[in-house]
């Protein structure tokens, strides 16, 4: 238990640093920066206290905003997505089925993927809506969220598979 908490804290710090120092500088096609830090919110065990989880989601976004000097889009997006996680879970794993413990250990691959897809797309949509914050930029928001979503999805799938090997 103790080692797991340490591991989580370690990955929390690591993911923030990786996001801020590395992935925010990538700029694929000029502006697309994959958001790896979502991995933390995804792999956080499902059976833990939801209230604490919301707070963690808030902190994660807050630190990234704070360090990278952006407004508050990361904070709002990750906070909202962590609040919505139980609902997304319901839709991707089914209402009646057994609640998975963690996305890393669950054997239902399709459901895991769907969960990841919804989770990331909701986050990106919120993030870009806040970043552009204008109804005129609707198409821009959609375009950017789709592009970024693809890269975030690939990156998160890759790195989460690394976790599983461990």
């Amino acid at each position: 238990m103790n080692s797991q908490i340490l591991k989580m804290m370690g990955s929390f710090v690591l993911l923030i640093l990786a996001q801020v120092l590395l992935f925010n500088q990538i700029n694929i096609f000029g502006s697309v920066n994959p958001m790896l830090y979502l991995l933390f919110l995804v792999m956080y065990p499902f059976d833990q206290n939801q209230t604490f989880y919301i707070f963690i989601g808030f902190l994660l976004g807050f630190f990234i905003d704070f360090i990278s000097q952006t407004g508050g889009a990361h904070t709002i997006a990750s906070l909202s997505v962590s609040y919505l996680r139980p609902i997304i879970m319901k839709y991707s794993y089914g209402l009646t089925s057994e609640r998975p413990k963690s996305i890393l250990t669950d054997p239902r691959k399709t459901n895991n993927f769907v969960f990841l897809l919804i989770f990331i797309s909701v986050h990106h949509l919120i993030y870009f809506s806040i970043a552009y914050f204008s109804a005129d930029a609707f198409l821009l928001i959609i375009k950017n969220s789709l592009l970024t979503m693809i890269f975030s999805l690939i990156l998160i799938l890759l790195i989460s598979s690394l976790y599983r090997v461990k």
Binding site: I54, F58, G71, G72, A73, I76, S80, Y83
Partner: peptide, 19 residues
């Protein structure tokens, strides 16, 4: 959630002139 959302909105407002 609402509390933290409010907080982050204030944060957003304080940080970015555009927002």
């Amino acid at each position: 959630y609402l509390f933290l959302l409010g907080f982050s909105l204030i944060f957003l407002k304080a940080n970015s002139n555009f927002h």
